[in-house]
Simulated assay, not measured.
Amino acid sequence: MSIQQESRVIAMAGIHNFRDYGGYAARGGRLRAGRLWRSGQHSEATPEDLDKVHALRIATVIDLRGDSERAGNRCLRHPEFDGEVLFHPGETASAAGRAVHEEMVRDVRTADDARQAMLNLYETLPFRPVLVGTYRLYMQALAERESPSLLHCLAGKDRTGVAAALVHHLLGVHQDDIVADYLLTNTAGNAEARIEAGARHVREGFGISMDDAAVRVLMGVEAPFLERAFATVRERHGSVEAYARDVLGVTPQVLAAMEANLVE
């Protein structure tokens, strides 16, 4: 059996949405547990949080944020962390210092507005040049490195969610499991604290006229968001596999190496 959803999550005081997205049935076996980690940013991590992360022996961190996000919210690392942090330089959002879900919300007032903004956002995520650059680095790392890795952005839900879903799809995880893992963002850890923190940031940047329901949509995930990203990929490239090959550099050889490292 795969890892129970609730046992995937590691409770942290200052890191939101920290969880293992391995353990699912995949093509030829099952994804190894303890190899594929995902989360939000670590800028507010406590010493206890950093001890928990260090115990996982994570050797590669993939930071999907833009340069200004990293500068404004420096991620904390354990004193003994000696791994590598990978990212493609530049901005992944069009507004410097903003997360991608924040750049879409200037005209959002209602939950329906928020849903449309998120659908529009997800059409763009697989094709943003800087984000694509980091996705490429991630796929290469999964092919070349056997050690555990951690994938994160600001909230660990959109840029991270698409990347994790791509890895799942390429390794043959069932669509139901892909969606279930994606939706786990809505309940992982202290979701209410994450929503509250995100709401403060959104309101500071875009005013207080936004409905509470709209804020909750922006700070959560819904299956149609991910479906829109994959549908756009298929419209432009014919298949997810062709997109991964042509845009992310996941050749058959790279995919075989990923499988060797991640499937048991």
Rank of each mutant, 00 (worst) to 15 (best):
H152V: 07
L131V: 13
N120T: 13
R74M: 12
A114H: 07
D107F: 05
L171V: 08
T124M: 05
Y138P: 00
A114S: 10
G90C: 12
L142T: 03
A93E: 02
T92H: 11
A143P: 11
R74C: 12
V105R: 05
E84D: 13
A180L: 06
S149R: 02
P126C: 08
E102S: 14
L170R: 01
L137T: 00
A114M: 08
V108N: 03
H174F: 09
A111D: 09
D82E: 14
H78I: 12
M118H: 01
G97D: 09
H152D: 07
M139K: 10
T185G: 03
G133E: 05
T92V: 15
G72E: 10
L121P: 06
V130G: 11
V179I: 15
H168A: 06
R128V: 15
S149F: 03
G161K: 00
R128I: 14
F87H: 14
R159Q: 14
M139L: 13
A141I: 04
E102H: 08
R128H: 14
V105D: 01
M118D: 04
N73A: 15
P129K: 12
H174G: 14
I178D: 00
V85L: 09
R128W: 09
Y138M: 15
A164P: 03
C75T: 11
L137F: 01
M104G: 05
P148C: 07
A117E: 04
V167S: 04
D113Y: 04
L170S: 05
Q175I: 10
A71W: 06
G133N: 09
L137E: 00
F127E: 04
H174M: 15
D113T: 03
D176Y: 01
E103P: 10
R145T: 13
H101R: 08
R128Q: 14
R77D: 06
Y122F: 12
V179A: 10
H169Q: 12
D82S: 15
L154S: 09
S147P: 04
L150S: 02
A180S: 02
G90V: 09
A180Y: 02
S149E: 10
H152C: 08
E84N: 10
L183T: 01
H101P: 03
A71T: 11
P79N: 13
R74A: 15
R109K: 11
A93H: 06
A165G: 03
H88Y: 12
V162L: 15
H101Y: 15
A143Q: 04
G83Q: 05
R74Q: 14
V167L: 10
D112V: 14
R128F: 10
A188T: 02
V173C: 02
A117H: 03
P126K: 01
G72S: 12
G72I: 07
Q175K: 13
D177F: 03
R128E: 15
A180E: 07
L150R: 00
T185R: 01
Y122V: 08
Q140A: 13
M139G: 11
L154E: 00
V130N: 05
P126D: 07
G172E: 01
N120R: 14
L150T: 00
H101K: 05
R109P: 09
M104Q: 03
L119P: 06
C75M: 12
